[in-house]
Design a protein around this nucleic acid. Structure first.
Lengths: 342, 342
DNA sequence: TTTTTTTATGCAGACGTTTGCGGTATCGAT
DNA sequence: ATCGATACCGCAAACGTCTGCATAAAAAAA
C-alpha cells in the first residue's frame, strides 16, 4: 500500500538542502542555523511529515514494540492484564503486538519467532499449559533479550517474573472457610504443571494443616480445563462417589467454582448453608450470581502494568534484570461474599 | 537490542557469492543453479537464518501487520472479537497490533497515526463513543487504504462494515417478552449516537408496534455507561418514579440487565414472575446468575474472524471494497433463559 | 571458429533514516 | 594577507532485502 507519505527526502528536495540537514533540523541537532530549522520544521508541518517508523527500526535495530504472548484472550483475568499492558505501553510510546497460543506450544514457539523477526524490543509472556520445555525462551534470555514472565512463570534460572501471591490467596480463602466452620473442604485444583496451581494447592494444604485438619490428597481433584461444565461434572461426580460428603469447595478458578455451585444446587444442597464455595480470580460475574461468589481477587490490570513497566525499564536499560530476579509479587485479596458465609 | 541474527550478507560472504544470489536462491528464483541453491539453503538452515521482517517491510512498503482499534479490551464481547481476529490473522500469516481507546477519540486518532507510521497493511476498528467526526478515517479511505469497521460503524459513505443484526435481535427479544405476556416493557438503551444502540432501539420499537402496543419514548431510558451499577441506579429510579410500574426490561446490554435485575430484586419484585428481563450480548455470566438471564447472543468470534478475512482480502486485493459496501450482517440469536419465562 | 542462445551470477540502487567525517564559507585576530 | 576558529551544511555509508539490468561463461547452433 503506497500512501505517498512525505519523507525527509521530499522536504530536502523542496528546500534544496540535504536529507542530513533536514534530519538534524527536525531533531534540533546543534550546527544547524535557526533559519534552516525554522524552514524545515514549517515545511514538515505543512507536508504533514511523519517519520517512517519502519525505516527507523531498521536503522536502530529496534521497533518500540513489545510482544505479548498469552494463552487466551477470552478470559477475564487475561483481558485485564492485557488492558494494563496496553495502557503502560501506550503511555511510554510503545506498540503492542498480541498473540494467543490457545494453550499450544507450537503456536507459542512460532509466535516468538515471528516477533523476533520483527525486531521486537521485548516480550511479555504467560506460557501455555503444554509448555514444559523452555528452550525457545532460554535462548533469548541467554543473549540478554528482555523477557518478563507473568502469572505463569517458568521453572528456570534468572528470569524476571511478575506473579500474584497465589499462595496466600489460597491460604486465606481456605482459612476463611475453616473459620466459617467448614471442615471437609475439597480443592478443585488446576493443571499440576502450572506453578500458580501448585501454589494455590500449597496454600490450601498449609491452611488445613495450620488449623489441625488432616490434608487428604484424595480431596484434591484436578480440573484441567477450568470451565464451568467441567467443574459441574467433576463436582457431581464427587458428590455421588465420595463416602464422606464435602461441605465446602475451594476452586482454582471461578468458572470451576460456579460449576461446583450449580452441581451442588442441582443435588439439592443449599449454598452457603450446606456447602461453602470460594473461587479464584474474581471474575465480574462473582457479584452477579446467586448467591454471590466469594473469590480471591487477582490484580490483573496491575500485573499487566507492572510487568510492562519492568520490561520497558529493561529495554531502555534503566534497570538491569538482576534487580528483578526475585519474583515481583502482587497482593491478592479475598473478597468474601455470600457463598461462603453461613 | 542487537541479537546478531544471521543475514543474507553473512551467508553470501561465507559462500563467496553475492547477496542477490542468496536472496534468489532462498526463494527458488529461476536462473540459480541447483547446486548453489542447495548450498545456500543448507547454510541458511545451519546458520538459523530468518529474514528480517523490518527490512522487508521497508523494501515492500508493507508489514504483514494489521491494526486493531477497540474501545475496551476488558469486555466480553470485544475479547471474543479479538480472539477471532487473532485467529484468522495468525492463520494467514499476519501480526496483530492492538490498541484500546478507552472510549477517547484523542487516543483513537493517535493510534491511527502510529499505525500508519508503521506501514500497517490495514485496520479493523470499532470506534469510541466520543467519535462523531470521522475525518481521521475518511482521509485514509479516500486514498484506498483498507479499513473494515465492525460492531460500531460510521455513518459515512463507502465503508466496509461487519455488524451483527442488532435490529432483529432486539425485535426478537421484545417479541419474546410480549409473547410471554409482558406489556409494559422499558428499554434501557445505549448511547444514542451509536448505530448499534439505534438499531436495538428500533427493533424494540417496531416489535411493540407490530404487536399493537403503543410506543412511548418515555419508556426508553439511556444508559450511557453500560455498567451494572448504572443499570441498577437507573432501574431503581424508574421503579420509584414511574406512575405505571413496568413489568419487563429489555436492556441494550447484559450489564445493564443485571443491574436492572438486582434493582428489581431489591425492590422486592420477583424475576421472572413480576418482571421479565432480557439482555444483550450473552456474556458468560448469563447462564450463571439466578435466575439465568435471557440474552441476545452476538457472534463475537465470528465477527472478528469475518472482518479479518475481508480486510485481508482487501489488503491482498483478492477482492475490492465495492464487493462489501453493503454491510455484512451476522445473525444474532435470542437465548431464552429463566429471567423472561413465566 | 564464429555467432547466438542459454545459464548463472554480480552490480548497484532503492526503501527512509541516521551519523561520522569532511568541507566551505565567514569572521575576528594576528 | 594569513591563520585559526567557528558555524553550517553535505557526502556517503549503513541497517537488510529485493530486483532491473548488465555481464561472464558455457552450451548450442551456425
Amino acid at each position: 500500500m503506497k500512501l505517498e507519505q512525505a519523507t525527509i527526502k521530499d522536504i530536502a528536495r523542496e528546500l534544496n538542502v540535504s536529507s542530513s540537514t533536514v534530519s538534524r533540523a527536525l531533531k534540533d541537532y546543534p550546527g544547524i542555523s535557526d533559519e534552516t530549522k525554522r524552514k524545515v520544521k514549517e515545511l514538515a508541518e505543512k507536508m504533514n511529515y511523519r517519520p517512517n517508523a519502519i525505516a527507523l527500526s531498521l536503522r536502530k535495530s529496534r521497533s518500540f514494540t513489545i510482544g505479548v504472548i498469552i494463552p487466551e484472550v477470552v478470559h477475564f483475568f487475561f483481558s485485564t492484564v492485557i488492558s494494563g499492558i496496553e495502557e503502560v505501553a501506550y503511555s511510554r510510546g510503545y506498540k503492542v503486538i498480541l498473540t494467543q497460543t490457545n494453550e499450544m506450544i507450537a503456536r507459542e514457539k512460532s509466535s516468538v519467532q515471528t516477533m523476533m523477526d520483527n525486531q521486537i524490543d521485548g516480550i511479555l509472556v504467560s506460557f501455555s499449559k503444554e509448555t514444559t520445555d523452555f528452550d525457545h525462551f532460554k535462548n533469548l534470555l541467554d543473549k540478554g533479550f528482555p523477557i518478563v514472565f507473568f502469572d505463569r512463570i517458568p521453572n528456570i534460572e534468572n528470569t524476571v517474573n511478575v506473579v500474584v501471591d497465589d499462595y496466600s490467596g489460597a491460604y486465606e480463602a481456605t482459612k476463611h472457610l475453616l473459620q466459617q466452620g467448614y471442615r471437609r473442604i475439597v480443592h478443585l485444583a488446576g493443571p499440576s504443571n502450572l506453578k500458580i496451581a501448585q501454589e494455590r494447592h500449597r496454600g490450601y494444604r498449609n491452611a488445613l494443616q495450620d488449623h489441625g485438619i488432616d490434608y487428604n490428597p484424595q480431596w484434591v481433584v484436578e480440573c484441567t480445563q477450568g470451565t464451568d461444565d467441567e467443574g459441574q461434572k467433576i463436582t457431581a461426580e464427587i458428590l455421588r462417589t465420595f463416602s464422606e460428603t464435602p461441605d465446602a469447595f475451594f476452586a482454582n478458578n471461578d468458572m470451576a467454582a460456579v460449576g461446583a455451585m450449580l452441581a451442588c444446587k442441582a443435588a439439592g444442597m443449599r449454598v452457603p448453608e450446606d456447602i461453602g464455595i470460594v473461587g479464584f480470580s474474581n471474575w465480574q460475574f462473582c457479584s452477579m450470581i446467586d448467591p454471590t461468589l466469594s473469590s480471591v481477587a487477582q490484580p490483573g490490570f496491575k500485573m499487566g502494568a507492572t510487568a510492562t513497566e519492568i520490561l520497558l525499564d529493561l529495554v531502555e536499560k534503566k534497570k538491569s534484570s538482576e534487580e528483578f530476579l526475585d519474583s515481583v509479587m502482587l497482593d491478592t485479596e479475598l473478597l468474601v461474599r455470600k457463598s461462603s458465609v453461613r
